[in-house]
């Protein structure tokens, strides 16, 4: 029965073709460094899922942000686990994406015909850092507040347009409720949407072009 249902679906959706193209594609003999891309993707999924769960109780308002995080940690069953995974997953994701970039660089995997894969990867690294920056403010504790104060002051030192950029980041002169709300919006809507799009292009190219060999001596 299950087989007949599968055949019926496969005939219409081309599931076997997708499986063959995506998972059964030919890969050169590679090593553990080549798993960092998959690991980054896995961490992104983990962050997306735990992040969705956190929004069930989190409130992006100065009146409630800190208390709602305390409630997640102490009031809700397994809230500490969900937030813990999101917290550690965030650091791990930055780390993995960064080492993934290093591997690509040192193995020369960014060269023809994979330049666009590399370019989307650069933006994926930047958006990942953006997620870290915007997410850091959300607990609304002293560390979050002052880290973001400093973090938004840094672009503020740029000549001519610096203070304008700082005001755009903060949504005004001061770090305020507006800052928290816009950091939250960027953290859960804007950046994830951009990341999803970039991942789609990145992975399409990985599947289309295949992955590069480990370079041999003298290459």
């Amino acid at each position: 029965m299950a087989e007949r249902v599968f055949t019926w679906l496969d005939e219409r959706l081309g599931l076997t073709a997708i499986y063959n193209t995506v998972l059964d594609r030919k890969v050169p003999k590679v090593n553990w460094w080549y798993t960092l891309g998959s690991a980054s993707l896995f961490l992104f999924v983990i962050q997306a899922v735990t992040g969705m769960f956190l929004t069930v109780y989190y409130v992006p308002s100065p009146d409630h942000a800190y208390d709602s995080v305390q409630y997640i940690m102490n009031g809700v069953a397994f809230g500490w686990l969900i937030r813990g995974i999101h917290h550690w997953g965030a650091s791990l994701m930055v780390l993995f994406v960064f080492i993934h970039m290093l591997r690509t660089f040192f193995f020369g995997a960014y060269k023809y015909p994979r330049e666009v894969t590399w370019l989307t990867g650069v933006f994926l690294l930047l958006t990942t850092l953006g997620m870290g920056f915007t997410g850091y403010l959300l607990p609304w504790n002293q560390r979050a507040y002052w880290a973001t104060t400093v973090g938004t002051e840094i672009p503020g030192t740029a000549p001519f347009i610096g203070s304008f950029i700082e005001r755009i980041l903060r949504g005004g002169t001061d770090l305020s409720a507006v800052t928290l709300a816009r950091f939250f919006a960027v953290h859960i809507w804007f950046l994830p949407a951009i990341i999803l799009l970039l991942i789609a292009v990145h992975m399409y190219l990985v599947i289309r072009l295949g992955i590069s060999n480990i370079p041999k001596e003298g290459e």
Partner: peptide
């Protein structure tokens, strides 16, 4: 399982 507990605990 913890995820379900997280959602229904309140």
């Amino acid at each position: 399982l913890p995820a379900i507990g997280y959602l229904i605990s309140p």
